[in-house]
């Protein structure tokens, strides 16, 4: 489904990712863990072509995306939901306009259907009645949840979430993780999540990948990760 081979990325002299290879299966929930600044966001952005890798290949559904042009990538990305770490909502639009934007751009839905759909996803993320608020009037956690609502509103077959639970309280984190899990299972959607949230990662992931110093330190099912003999992994998940 998603196939990454020998991916490297550096910023100036700083090597962020060093020849990383892994693959994500169709319908799988794949969680990428790692310390802050290790390159999780940079990796996720490369997976849908927002950042070009220095070397290596990335293919999605058999299409090599590193050789696609930006217009071709735009077409591909319509089918990928993406939650940005900071939400990245349009601050000149209110919540309703933000959420209806992908629907207006990419679907033939009528106004009434859009209103209903927006209402539905907002209630999924536990934010009824904030349609007319602007992003500047929302808390960090609320922005993130609106961002998640925007990422899932097109029912995409692929979902990338950059730290969906950071900045949320433990209960909300659990709810949001469950929400992503449900959404993903319902649509058998291939989901890649980056996170610090080890508890929820171990709970909802099909497989977990841990990155350290640009390399993969561990990759496997939650049970395998939990019983890993590797000292770094043991410390990281404890």
């Amino acid at each position: 489904m998603i196939e990454v081979k020998n991916l490297s990325k550096a910023f100036g002299v700083q090597k962020v990712l060093d020849k990383i290879s892994f693959s994500v299966n169709r319908g799988e929930i794949f969680v990428i863990l790692g310390e802050s600044g290790v390159g999780k966001s940079v990796l996720l952005k490369q997976l849908n072509g927002l950042i070009d890798p220095d070397e290596g290949s990335i293919s999605i559904d058999g299409v090599e995306i590193t050789s696609l042009s930006e217009p071709e990538l735009l077409g591909l990305r319509k089918k990928i939901g993406y939650l940005f770490q900071e939400g990245a909502l349009y601050d000149f639009m209110n919540v309703y306009e933000n959420l209806s934007f992908p629907l207006r751009e990419h679907t033939p839905l009528k106004r009434k259907e859009i209103v209903d759909k927006v209402k539905k996803v907002l209630s999924l993320v536990g934010l009824e009645g904030v349609e007319s608020k602007f992003p500047s009037e929302l808390s960090g956690g609320m922005k993130k949840r609106v961002g998640l609502a925007r990422a899932i509103i097109l029912d995409s077959q692929i979902l990338f979430c950059d730290e969906p639970t950071s900045g949320l309280d433990p209960i909300r984190s659990r709810d949001i993780s469950n929400l992503i899990q449900n959404a993903s299972r319902k649509l058998s959607c291939t989901t890649v999540i980056t996170s610090h949230d080890i508890t929820n990662a171990l709970r909802i992931a099909d497989r977990i990948m841990i990155i350290k110093e640009g390399k993969i330190a561990g990759l496997g099912k939650p049970s395998e990760i939990k019983s890993s003999p590797n000292a770094f992994i043991r410390e990281f998940i404890s």
């Binding site: 735009l74 990928i80 900071e86 990245a88 751009e105």
Partner: peptide, 18 residues
């Protein structure tokens, strides 16, 4: 500029819009 520093151009591209 504030859109740029808040990743809103990236988000636009991520939603398949130029």
């Amino acid at each position: 500029g504030s859109m740029s520093v808040n990743d809103q151009f990236l988000a636009t591209r991520a939603m398949g819009v130029d």
